[in-house]
Design a protein around this nucleic acid. Structure first.
Lengths: 144, 144
DNA sequence: TAATATACTACAAAATTACTAGGAATTCAA
DNA sequence: TTGAATTCCTAGTAATTTTGTAGTATATTA
């Protein structure tokens, strides 16, 4: 039941962008340096965020990325789902609408649905702004 | 954020044992056949449950496994934690007591703690007896 | 036009998951 | 007392997923 580095890095990446939101375009390189994460790997993660319009990119010199909205308008849940994929504990729950036919009438499916709902409720209640505010007080160890 | 087959199989295994709780020792072989799960793999999973005294084993002919308590005295959470390990979304939360030193003052740790609490709350509120009751009504597709 | 970026595709290493194999030890029943 | 049934134990291995690397094309600016 682990969150992968993709999701964790995405949170740090987005927090970094939020903190520097008034500094124009932010290059992957600068984020990678500050956060001590592989540049190329970050590139792949930010691509996922760009595809879903959570960030926008500008190519070329002085290019880089920036947020498309205010930090308070993002939730942690949204960021995690874009980078991790669904937070569902089983594959059958990955499509929003219809779980797999066999599972429709399955005992355990309802358990996993409850778990998913509980997880989503938590992560959807926390905004990126909250991370920014806390970060300024506390810091981020980088390991979780 | 997936539950592995270990945890899912363990749930089916324990439900199977609960349903046959008055039939004496239940062999791995019979469970494997009923549940259509590899015998050798089940063996490894049940070993984890036996080590923590969720089931007891009898060796030799006519041997097998049985529950050590009534089905209502097990929670899904307990079964999952024994087989999956902690349900924590990050390694730093795996030991109950003290998260890693660096993380103590970390922004994201509190998010993961909230997620863990939410997940545990759900799975700890469901008993094995509930699975048995529902199973009799609904069945189990085996894929989740 | 050189420097600085992102965009894209493919590959690869490392870690984890999900088994498989084989035999030793134990118990029961004939 | 022997053979069948069963758990116990250790290793190995295949498949999958995660976590990156590498290289090149494309775009932008000074």
């Amino acid at each position: 039941m682990k969150i992968s580095t993709k999701g964790r890095y995405a949170l740090r990446l987005m927090t970094d962008l939020a903190i520097h939101k008034d500094d124009g375009n932010i290059s992957i390189k600068s984020i990678a340096t500050r956060q001590n994460i592989s540049e190329k790997y970050l590139e792949q993660i930010i691509k996922l965020l760009a595809k879903e319009n959570l960030v926008e990119s500008t190519r070329g010199a002085q290019g880089g990325y920036k947020l498309t909205r205010e930090p308070i308008e993002y939730t942690v849940g949204e960021i995690l789902r874009v980078t991790e994929g669904s937070l569902a504990p089983v594959a059958c729950l990955e499509t929003d609408d219809n779980p797999c036919e066999n599972c429709m009438d399955c005992v355990t499916l309802e358990i996993w649905q409850c778990v998913l709902d509980a997880v989503n409720k938590v992560v959807d209640s926390i905004t990126l702004q909250y991370l920014v505010d806390k970060q300024k007080e506390k810091g981020n160890c980088g390991c979780c």
